[in-house]
Amino acid sequence: MAMNNVRSVRCILSSTKEAVKVACQRTYATGKAKKGSKGGGTADGPKASSLSKEIKSTTVVGANILKEGTDPKILPYSEYPDWLWHLLDKRPALSELRRKNLEALPYEDLKRYVKLDNRARIKENNSLKAKN
């Protein structure tokens, strides 16, 4: 009789382990989305853009942040200010500025040197205070 109880307990334990395995498995939805159903799933992948190539090449698509209005048109380069084309230019790092003669630096680089040097000194002082 004790042997039958052990077998039934083993059977219950093995079936619960299988149930736990099935319950803990990560599953994904399969199948095609029905027409008119919720969920937003697509059947075969991303849809092609409904905008023509002409519109994409003449306007900044998605730049309009207002509810009403249209996307701005792309202007010729001569219509934009000169400083715009230098925004992404590489500026010298602090180590590079320290190697140069400070009297010979242009005003913008000198201003950048002071700013970066001050920031580095503040970080160093903070790290020294944090260790004590």
Score class of each variant (00 low, 15 high):
residue 1 M to W: 08
residue 1 M to Y: 06
residue 2 A to Q: 11
residue 3 M to N: 08
residue 3 M to Q: 08
residue 4 N to Y: 06
residue 5 N to K: 15
residue 7 R to C: 03
residue 8 S to I: 03
residue 9 V to A: 14
residue 10 R to L: 15
residue 11 C to D: 14
residue 12 I to P: 01
residue 13 L to F: 06
residue 15 S to W: 02
residue 15 S to E: 12
residue 17 K to N: 11
residue 19 A to I: 05
residue 20 V to W: 10
residue 21 K to C: 05
residue 22 V to I: 15
residue 22 V to D: 11
residue 23 A to R: 12
residue 23 A to M: 10
residue 24 C to F: 11
residue 25 Q to A: 15
residue 25 Q to D: 13
residue 25 Q to T: 15
residue 26 R to P: 01
residue 26 R to S: 07
residue 27 T to Q: 15
residue 29 A to C: 07
residue 29 A to E: 14
residue 30 T to A: 12
residue 35 K to A: 03
residue 36 G to E: 13
residue 38 K to G: 11
residue 41 G to N: 09
residue 44 D to R: 09
residue 46 P to I: 08
residue 46 P to D: 10
residue 47 K to H: 12
residue 48 A to W: 05
residue 49 S to R: 14
residue 49 S to N: 13
residue 50 S to A: 13
residue 52 S to K: 01
residue 54 E to Q: 14
residue 54 E to V: 11
residue 54 E to I: 08
residue 55 I to P: 03
residue 55 I to T: 15
residue 56 K to Y: 05
residue 58 T to F: 02
residue 62 G to D: 10
residue 62 G to Y: 04
residue 63 A to P: 00
residue 65 I to M: 06
residue 67 K to I: 06
residue 68 E to W: 00
residue 68 E to R: 05
residue 69 G to E: 00
residue 69 G to C: 02
residue 69 G to M: 01
residue 70 T to N: 12
residue 72 P to M: 04
residue 74 I to R: 15
residue 74 I to W: 03
residue 74 I to H: 02
residue 74 I to T: 08
residue 77 Y to G: 03
residue 77 Y to R: 09
residue 81 P to W: 01
residue 82 D to L: 05
residue 84 L to E: 06
residue 86 H to F: 12
residue 89 D to R: 10
residue 90 K to T: 11
residue 90 K to D: 15
residue 90 K to H: 10
residue 91 R to I: 05
residue 92 P to W: 06
residue 92 P to T: 04
residue 92 P to Y: 04
residue 92 P to L: 07
residue 93 A to W: 03
residue 94 L to F: 11
residue 94 L to Q: 01
residue 96 E to N: 04
residue 96 E to R: 06
residue 97 L to N: 08
residue 97 L to Q: 06
residue 99 R to Y: 05
residue 100 K to T: 02
residue 100 K to M: 14
residue 101 N to E: 13
residue 101 N to H: 06
residue 101 N to D: 15
residue 103 E to R: 10
residue 104 A to M: 09
residue 104 A to L: 12
residue 105 L to W: 02
residue 108 E to S: 07
residue 108 E to N: 01
residue 109 D to M: 00
residue 110 L to G: 11
residue 110 L to F: 14
residue 110 L to T: 09
residue 111 K to G: 00
residue 114 V to G: 00
residue 115 K to S: 10
residue 116 L to W: 02
residue 117 D to N: 09
residue 118 N to R: 13
residue 118 N to T: 13
residue 119 R to W: 03
residue 120 A to C: 08
residue 125 N to I: 12
residue 126 N to Y: 02
residue 128 L to Q: 11
residue 129 K to L: 13
residue 131 K to V: 05
